[in-house]
């Protein structure tokens, strides 16, 4: 009886897992398949490409616009991550460690900012950036990305910092460390999983953003991949750029997947094991 029940349970679990995985992965597989089809086969109603061809990838990489956009994306997302994490870490540290008036208010306000709909500030920002000369520049995108991801970074980091025993820092201070040394040599290594997860979240936000990218850029100067993809044209005016878009999408998805897979171990690893008793 137990084995029959066990088998049925396993079956249900298996079926459920397959369902979820399909739901998540079929669109991705479809995208991949589209990017590998020949231009003429795009409308052939087949799931797998009849002939695997790399012509869209070739076309995408030959396009100077895309190369520029890729560079913009990497640079802007990377710098936004740094720009959000540094103040985020210090702010989270202060919120967790220091008793100061308005601490709760600050956390609440941070959350409120995260809930602010970006679309409502994009218009004014457009005007502001144009008169400040930030329109279509890297800082013009990094600033809003940093602003909108900072709350996320602060919340994630403060959750991780809160779990680090405070006595470790006290011990470091008694051992002769300055507050900065204690933060850099004791707290930061222990908070590494938190820093990595916050970094991934911020990076993804900047990497995937379409709204700011499309509104605040106009040339290859600062246009990121999601915005650039929207400006793709087919090789002739009668051809939809579906294949190129699919290929470009695969190219921008890949690094994200890689980053997450790479850092996952660090996130999962429990670094604080053995700090205090038990």
């Amino acid at each position: 009886m137990t084995s029959a029940r066990g088998r049925r349970e396993r079956l249900l679990w298996g079926a459920g897992s397959v369902l979820v995985v399909c739901y998540a992965l079929v669109p991705v597989a479809w995208l991949l398949s589209l990017s590998l089809k020949r231009g003429a086969d795009l409308g052939d109603h087949r799931f797998l490409p009849a002939v695997v061809s790399l012509e869209h990838y070739r076309a995408v990489f030959q396009d100077p616009q895309f190369a520029a956009a890729l560079w913009n994306s990497v640079g802007i997302a990377g710098l936004s991550t740094l720009a959000a994490l540094l103040p985020g870490l210090l702010a989270a540290y202060a919120i967790v460690r220091l008793e100061f008036p308005g601490r709760r208010l600050l956390l609440a306000a941070t959350l409120a900012i995260a809930m602010f709909p970006p679309v409502s500030i994009v218009g004014p920002l457009f005007d502001l950036w144009r008169s400040l000369g930030l329109y279509d520049t890297w800082p013009g995108l990094i600033l809003p990305y940093m602003t909108f991801t900072l709350p996320l970074a602060i919340w994630t980091l403060s959750a991780f910092l809160r779990d680090i025993p405070w006595e470790l820092e006290k011990a470091a201070r008694v051992d002769g460390a300055t507050p900065m040394q204690a933060l850099l040599r004791i707290i930061l290594p222990l908070a590494a999983p938190g820093v990595f997860s916050a970094a991934i979240l911020v990076f993804l936000f900047a990497w995937n953003d379409f709204l700011f990218a499309i509104s605040l850029t106009s040339t290859d100067n600062a246009r990121t991949v999601p915005a650039a993809i929207a400006f793709f044209t087919g090789s002739s005016r009668f051809e939809q750029p579906t294949g190129s878009i699919a290929a470009a999408s695969v190219v921008v998805t890949l690094p994200v997947v890689l980053v997450v897979l790479l850092f996952q171990r660090r996130i999962v690893a429990g670094l604080t094991a053995g700090a205090v008793k038990g």
Binding site: E167, K170, A171, V174, A177, V276, K277
Partner: peptide, 16 residues
Amino acid sequence: RDRDMAMVFQSYAIYP
């Protein structure tokens, strides 16, 4: 750090 004292904490506070 300028007091030249060392302390043992209840939780040991060893750097993990």
